[in-house]
Design a protein around this nucleic acid. Structure first.
Length: 562
DNA sequence: AAGGCCCTCAACCGCCTTGTG
DNA sequence: ACACAAGGCGGTTGAGGGCCT
């Protein structure tokens, strides 16, 4: 059958599509099937649609290659399947997404990342392609506007999908409570990453001794989007419009992530990447030392760092659930509020040894909530340390140990045993880490991670939102000093973050309790399954040795520790 | 009015997974 | 165990239209 024979066909098909190959033969021209039949590409005509519909009615879905053989449709099987799935199948919704759908997509993306097909199953009548296009469009739009991709009240947690970090939802008072509660365990990382708004960065010692400039350099060399970010940082520096140093505050509650010109997730990632607290081992002072074919993880790919390409060039970036699209100059400059550059400088210049987790080092004066929280947590940690029955297997005080002894371990999942970024959070952490790591041949992150001592709990990255509602901007402050019971949050966004972003949060998003609960529950539940057994190789502990960073299995699918 | 830019969407491509012989 | 085919999935591309200058 000649589907081009009808009037409608000739009207609809550009001449070059009909008779002559388009400039892009591959994409809009024709191809030849195995049996020598010329297969048409490009837009479908109504006649083709009719043929396909008729065929499916008669034979049902599946066996798409047979369509071309049996119906005379000059389309390859894949094309037929796609056409059917995206446009012809019954019950497809057409038109713009409803606000409800949009919110659901946002939430699903926070949980799943770029799992478009999975997301589509939650949106009856919608296709993965639609959702994907919607999301990509949204990313661009929000980025351009300097708005966060995810609601500020969204929290992050390790993803349930491959290495992606999840932003789950909500936040708030509950979060504040979490931060203050003594029943929960903070990922040590939380405090290690704290970055004061101003001045004293006494606790920045836990930061990797990687300077921003180094990072910048590394990325520049990779022609990485990060360069832009740094350029903008410079601009920001000049503009003096910066309020807070968020770099390195991710775990600490992300006080001001919202100030970043990108979505919170991106901010988070940025924060993660920049301050990823690894490196208790001062050996890693140069990003160049990190090697590996690191694929940006889902979690990080969106950061300011371009999500479009892997650092190594060998990996594939997956837009993280936390992801946000690559940041461009405009996004940075457009954003009215930016990270405190002084803080950045401090971070960059701070000596790795200068920082300790000791609460004494924390300077509550420096900046507000984060500091307060940090200080408090440290104190908590110290007090608990003495009573802790757990003993560290390492003589050196590691982050994990800190975590362990402090009782701040959120999930009590034995992250200490997984002293690498590959815990549920680890995945994210790794991702983040990767994000800023220069590509080095085929090594996985664990190859260059400081070993035992770097046990910064990957779990720390498992930041999970459990908050139920959006609080008022001041709620955090009101509650930050109070202690509330909190049911094992996986991670908590700092109240500071909440505070900083509260306004934005009010403007753009209201968390969904159901989603938050869902995410919270399943993630926490799953992560808690991880026994606290010791493992010399964290990766092994999770059975991740063989997982490329960009192919990390869902946390829940990770082999449990023995 | 014309050109450029941006956005949206449909479609293709390549890779991966799964099923089958 | 292996090879192959089919299908699924995510990323990317290009066309077309609208908006802006």
């Amino acid at each position: 059958m000649n589907h081009l024979s009808t009037k409608s066909d000739t009207e609809m098909i550009p001449e070059d599509h009909m008779d002559t190959p388009s400039v892009d033969e591959g994409r809009r021209g024709k191809s030849v099937s195995k049996d020598g039949q010329v297969l048409k590409k490009g837009p479908w005509t109504s006649a083709e649609d009719a043929i396909l519909v008729e065929y499916v009615k008669e034979h049902g879905e599946g066996n798409w290659n047979a369509v071309q053989k049996n119906s005379g449709l000059s389309r390859c099987g894949k094309s037929c399947r796609l056409r059917w799935a995206n446009h012809l199948r019954p019950n497809l919704k057409k038109g713009a997404f409803t606000p409800e759908e949009e919110q659901l997509i946002i939430k699903l993306h926070a949980k799943m990342g770029n799992k478009w097909a999975q997301m589509a199953t939650q949106l009856p009548g919608r296709t993965d392609n639609e959702i994907k296009n919607f999301w990509n469009t949204r990313i661009k739009r929000l980025q351009r506007a300097g708005l966060p991709l995810y609601p500020p009240n969204v929290c992050f947690q390790a993803s349930d999908g491959d290495q992606q970090t999840q932003i789950v939802s909500s936040v708030t008072q509950h979060q504040n409570d979490i931060l203050q509660g003594n029943n929960f365990d903070f990922p040590d990382i939380v405090f290690e990453n704290l970055y004061p708004d101003h001045g004293d960065l006494s606790y920045t010692s836990s930061f990797p001794d990687v300077s921003m400039s180094s990072m910048c350099h590394g990325f520049e060399s990779q022609d990485h989007g990060y360069t832009n970010m740094m350029n903008n940082v410079e601009q920001l520096r000049d503009s003096e419009t910066i309020n807070v140093g968020y770099y390195g505050t991710f775990y600490s509650g992300l006080p001001s992530v919202s100030r970043f010109p990108f979505e919170p997730s991106g901010k988070m990632q940025l924060a993660f990447g920049l301050d990823y607290p690894y490196d208790p081992d001062a050996n890693i002072k140069n990003l160049a030392t990190f090697g590996g074919e690191i694929s940006l993880s889902h979690a990080l790919s969106n950061g300011n760092i371009s999500a479009s390409r892997p650092l190594s060039g060998a990996g594939k970036l997956e837009l993280p659930s936390l992801q946000h699209a690559e940041t461009d100059d405009s996004s940075w400059t457009a954003y009215h509020s930016t990270p405190h550059l002084e803080a950045i400088d401090t971070y960059v210049e701070s000596s790795p040894t200068a920082v300790s987790l000791q609460s004494e080092c924390i300077s509550p004066r420096s900046s507000g909530l984060l500091e307060v929280m940090l200080h408090e947590a440290q104190a908590l940690s110290n007090s608990k340390r003495h009573s802790s029955e757990k003993s560290s297997s390492s003589s050196a005080i590691t982050h994990n140990e800190m975590l362990e002894s402090s009782g701040l371990n959120f999930f009590d999942i034995g992250w200490e045993d997984c002293n690498d970024p590959i815990s549920p959070l680890g995945c994210s952490a790794a991702s983040i880490f990767n994000e800023f790591m220069p590509p080095v041949n085929g090594s996985s992150i664990h190859e260059f991670l400081p070993s035992e001592s770097t046990a910064v709990s990957a779990g720390s990255l498992n930041i999970m939102a459990v908050a139920e509602q959006i609080s008022t901007p001041n709620v955090e402050e009101k509650h930050v000093l109070s202690q509330t019971d909190f049911p094992e949050p996986e991670a908590v966004l700092g109240s500071g973050w909440l505070e900083e972003s509260s306004q934005a949060g009010k403007d753009c998003f209201v968390s969904d309790d159901a989603i938050a609960t869902l995410l919270d529950q399943d993630f926490c539940k799953d992560n808690k399954m991880v026994p606290a057994g010791a493992s010399s190789n964290p990766l092994q502990g999770f059975g991740l040795e063989s997982y490329p960073w960009n192919k990390m299995p869902d946390v829940r699918q990770m082999p449990e520790l023995p």
